[in-house]
């Protein structure tokens, strides 16, 4: 009996709701810890990032003006889709070096985190909005709005829940995002893009690149049409570099160091607030 050969998956980028190869044509070899599998990952370029920002910017007005209820349902849908594809993530996480138990835990937590932020998508506004008692004949209220396009450097590991933990609050808040996946364990990030793709997330709301952090950090932090950057990691030089570049257009730099991404303590609505702006409106009260 002939042995059937596997059909191997090509890992591409996820930009504007499509799965293009990198425009640069470059790749980097990713090998699993056991040296059993070699994958050619796209080595995303500055131009890929630029294209992703263009997609994110054009998706922004549609995404922010969706009803909160709708955004909430879409986030919930991502959780549902992830649940449905556990097998695929199990395989990849294990291939990336996790034990079966670890992989299972990470997937469970990732799904739960999505559901957690899905629930917040139509509630944080109430927690962070207020009517301000001004001492004049005005009705004055403040409410949060998304800050715009966010670039994000996902933690190296854990790579799935790390990605989920930063993307979910960003998009729950009505922002769009371009995220750089874990360089060390990139497989499940692209598979996560497939989940997004089948979850009613409009194209361009989440864009995922793979590539070298050292190469792309500059562009993620300096692009003038990016309103905030989320950096996960604890490399001091990188943090300084990101924060310096953020000054170019007064980007909001948000830095998460040494987070235990598998802990429920890293989830709260203040993480949504980090990429929100408070708008205050005044209106006279009279006839």
């Amino acid at each position: 009996m002939n042995k059937r050969e596997d059909v191997k998956k090509t890992y591409k980028l996820y930009i504007g709701g499509k799965f293009p190869r990198t425009e640069s044509g470059r790749y980097f070899k990713w090998t699993d810890p056991k040296n059993s599998t070699v994958v050619n990952m796209c080595r995303g370029s500055r131009k890929d990032f630029r294209n992703a920002v263009v997609s994110a910017r054009s998706a922004f007005s549609g995404w922010r003006s969706k009803t909160a209820y709708n955004r909430s349902q879409i986030l919930y849908r991502i959780g549902e889709m992830l649940e449905g594809r556990r097998g695929q993530f199990m395989d990849e996480l294990i291939l990336q070096g996790a034990s079966k138990k670890e992989a299972e835990n990470e997937i469970n937590q990732s799904i739960d985190r999505l559901i957690y932020y899905a629930g917040w998508a139509d509630k944080y506004q109430q927690v962070f909005s207020r009517v301000n008692p001004v001492a004049s004949s005005y009705f004055n209220f403040s409410y949060p709005e998304p800050t715009g396009v966010v670039s994000a450097i996902a933690p190296d590991e854990p790579s799935l829940i790390g990605l989920v933990s930063i993307v979910a609050p960003i998009i729950a808040g009505g922002n769009t995002v371009v995220v750089l996946a874990s360089e060390a364990k990139p497989l499940c990030s692209i598979t996560f893009a497939e989940v997004l793709h089948t979850s009613d997330v409009p194209g361009g709301v989440v864009n995922i690149l793979t590539g070298y952090r050292s190469e792309l950090l500059e562009h993620f932090s300096s692009h003038m049409d990016v309103n905030a950057i989320v950096y996960c990691g604890n490399v001091k030089e990188e943090i300084k570099f990101v924060q310096e570049n953020a000054a170019l257009n007064v980007k909001r730099p948000i830095v998460y160091t040494d987070e235990n991404w598998l802990d429920k303590k890293v989830q709260d609505p203040y993480r949504i607030l980090n990429t929100l702006e408070i708008k205050t409106t005044w209106h006279p009260v009279g006839i």
Partner: peptide, 8 residues
Amino acid sequence: IDEVGAQE
């Protein structure tokens, strides 16, 4: 006419 503006 906006009443508050007129008062101000």
